[in-house]
Amino acid sequence: MKLYSDFAVQRARQVTADIIALALIALSVVTGIAVFSAVDQLAQFGRQLQTTGVDFRTSMTDAGTRLGGVPFIGEGISSPFTTASSAGDTLAAVGQTQQDLVRQAAIALGVGVAALPILIVLLVWIIPRLRFVSRATRTRALMRAGLTTDLLALRALTHQKVGAVTKVDPDAVSAWRRGDPVVLQRLAGLELKSVGIRAR
């Protein structure tokens, strides 16, 4: 697999783009985590509400249990406290629900803030990089298998921009048909340079 160009300038651009892309991805992840943490702090109110509800239920249950032990009137006195303890359960449930909603919102916002820039970076960076790696690796394998200058020149005629081809020769197709060695060599070099391979 060929990851980088043989040409210093092109290779420097590729390395720089890779570093910038990886730095932007890392920054997006850190920002997403920061947003998640900031939003998740809002769940503190729910945690306090849940703790208050549990404490209230425990207090009412304990009071009802103590008063229930009073002879003759204990059962009647403890009943309101037992009923009141269910309000603590309701309060604790509301607190838990609030925490769950905040956690879901924190996850959604954190992932959204991180994912959008990462997706943009990947579309702008990874697709051209993968295309380069694929073409360079395939061309190098073909050269090892005996790809000729003539075929490389033909690839240049079909793959390269018209402006680049006409700089080699205004009538490059005719030059290729008659097998002009200078034009063939320059076209082959043009094709190889586009895939980051230095002609040997």
Rank of each mutant, 00 (worst) to 15 (best):
H159I: 06
D18H: 15
G68H: 09
V195L: 06
R198C: 01
Q99D: 08
L192T: 06
I20P: 00
T82G: 10
S37E: 10
F56D: 00
A26C: 13
G163W: 02
T16E: 15
V54D: 14
V173C: 01
T158Y: 14
I197E: 00
H159L: 02
A87D: 02
A84H: 06
L91V: 15
Q185T: 11
A92W: 00
R186Y: 10
R135N: 15
W176G: 00
R129K: 14
T139K: 01
A172M: 03
D100N: 10
T139R: 11
L101R: 06
R198S: 05
G95F: 05
D18I: 03
A141V: 12
G74D: 07
D6V: 05
G46W: 09
R66L: 13
A12E: 15
A38M: 02
L3Y: 13
T58W: 04
T149W: 07
T97V: 08
T82S: 11
G53R: 05
V124Y: 08
L157W: 01
A114H: 03
I107Q: 07
V102A: 08
V124W: 11
Q98E: 05
D55Y: 08
I20T: 12
L157T: 09
V121E: 11
Q99S: 14
G46D: 06
P170Y: 07
A145I: 01
R138A: 14
G95W: 07
M1R: 10
R138I: 11
A38E: 10
I73T: 00
A93G: 12
T139W: 11
D171W: 02
V54P: 06
R47A: 00
A63Q: 01
D62G: 09
V168Y: 14
S5C: 10
A188S: 09
P80V: 08
I126S: 10
A8S: 13
V195R: 13
K167G: 02
I25P: 01
D89E: 02
R57P: 03
G53D: 03
V29L: 13
V94D: 03
R11D: 01
L122E: 01
R135M: 12
V15F: 15
D18R: 15
L49C: 14
V173K: 13
I118S: 09
S59K: 03
L152K: 03
A8K: 12
L142M: 06
F81K: 05
T90K: 08
R186C: 02
V94S: 13
V168G: 06
I107N: 04
V111T: 03
A12D: 15
L192D: 11
F45T: 10
R140C: 09
V168S: 02
R144M: 08
R155G: 06
Q96Y: 05
Y4K: 10
V113K: 07
L154I: 10
D150R: 13
R186S: 09
T51K: 12
R177Q: 15
F56H: 04
T148M: 01
A63L: 14
A153W: 03
F72N: 07
P80T: 03
A153H: 04
